[in-house]
Design a protein around this nucleic acid. Structure first.
Lengths: 207, 207
DNA sequence: CCGCGCGTGTATACGTGGTATACATACCCG
DNA sequence: CGGGTATGTATACCACGTATACACGCGCGG
């Protein structure tokens, strides 16, 4: 319920109308997670249904304004103090992909890792490029957007470290299997510790 | 479309029925992202609708079996080779929360950070505890599940580093504002790296 | 023996997230 | 004056996630 809570928090600051909420959200987070306008309106009506905000007619310009209720203020405060649950983390597509890549035969894990690695590297470069032009002002929103950017950088770096780690472990697992006494050694398999460092295919890893 | 692709990849391995798919998915990823059974069936029908899998009646035990089609095999291969798009990363609830915390008045950012930090630390301890009992066998699925676990560890560590980084930057920003009549006074006074034991390698990250 | 819990297995409903799009107004500019 | 663009509201539609209904088989104790 990320969007829901975020809109609630923004409304706690001051009453707003739909379009304005979207603008404020994006101003604080950069264009990192573009928020679709439609979602704002549907979420607002759900918030009103649940008694967390209240639509107070239209203002002088004809905008449908919303104010947060007491219950809403309470829930917003709870959102800020309650840490996000790491016990059930959001699905990580990359982790799932690699987990399947090492278990499903016929997939070249090394290639998957390298493709992802270079993609993440370019993203990282984009972030650092953005950072130069983002750290100009001293406004709150600049600080927030800069922190969000840092978050992206940190997680991208972690992802690269993890990919390297995976490559090493996959290679090691392949090696263990190769000189496993009972291993059928289907073909010389070009020696996992041979020239190409990224040549660990599933044929070597699994089965 | 994570689930969709994952199921497709599993079916590429061998034909299966719904419940079995869920079991295979969880065996490879541990219980990290428990996959709801219902989702399997709805996803399977969507896959069939799109011509990527084909339901081949029931087997001798009455299970509704599914096989992947040529188009499905193609899409699965594409999924493995195409890196996950970092250009539009999934919404990060924590990053959003902090970005709003520093921009909405009346929120104690320090408290938010500390709560999250301790929550992430406990999660990290849980992971390392799990790791000991997970690295026993040598089967494919053990390697996969172990890699997934490593992914969680890496990202939790990154999160903690980021939180420390945020704390330092927020403190610095507050200090600048405090002794900032007009000109940026020289001394950062309190010193951002006061007593923090986990002093993140903030590198040349920002400012 | 029979009911009961439990694991296995399939299917559907419902709320939310996310995206596209329809629709309306205002304002600038050629 | 007519069209493009920015602002603003609203709705439709699909995908995801969870809960739940429903059915079957099997072991176990009263």
């Amino acid at each position: 319920m990320t969007i829901r809570s975020a809109l609630l928090a923004l409304l706690e600051h001051k009453p707003m109308y739909g379009y304005q909420l979207r603008a404020e959200f994006e101003r604080r987070t950069g264009a990192t997670w573009p928020l679709n306008v439609g979602q704002v309106y549907t979420t607002l009506s759900r918030l009103e249904r649940d008694g967390l905000v209240e639509g107070t007619g239209v203002d002088e310009d004809g905008h449908g304004m919303y104010v947060v209720t007491a219950a809403g203020r309470e829930e917003a405060a709870a959102w800020f103090t309650t840490p996000v649950a790491r016990s059930q983390p959001p699905r990580d597509e990359l982790a799932i992909k690699l987990a399947l890549a090492v278990t499903v035969p016929g997939v070249d894990v090394g290639t998957v890792i390298q493709h992802q690695r270079s993609a993440t590297m370019t993203a990282l470069q984009d972030y650092t490029r953005l950072k130069r032009q983002a750290s100009s002002g001293t406004a709150d929103s600049d600080l927030a957007w800069s922190l969000v950017l840092d978050s992206l950088v940190f997680s991208a770096e972690a992802e690269i470290r993890w990919l390297d780690h995976c490559e090493a472990r996959v290679r090691r697992a392949a090696a263990e299997r190769a000189d496993d006494p009972v291993a059928p050694a289907a073909g010389p398999s070009a020696g996992p510790s041979a020239g190409n460092p990224s040549a660990a295919t599933v044929e070597e890893v699994s089965r």
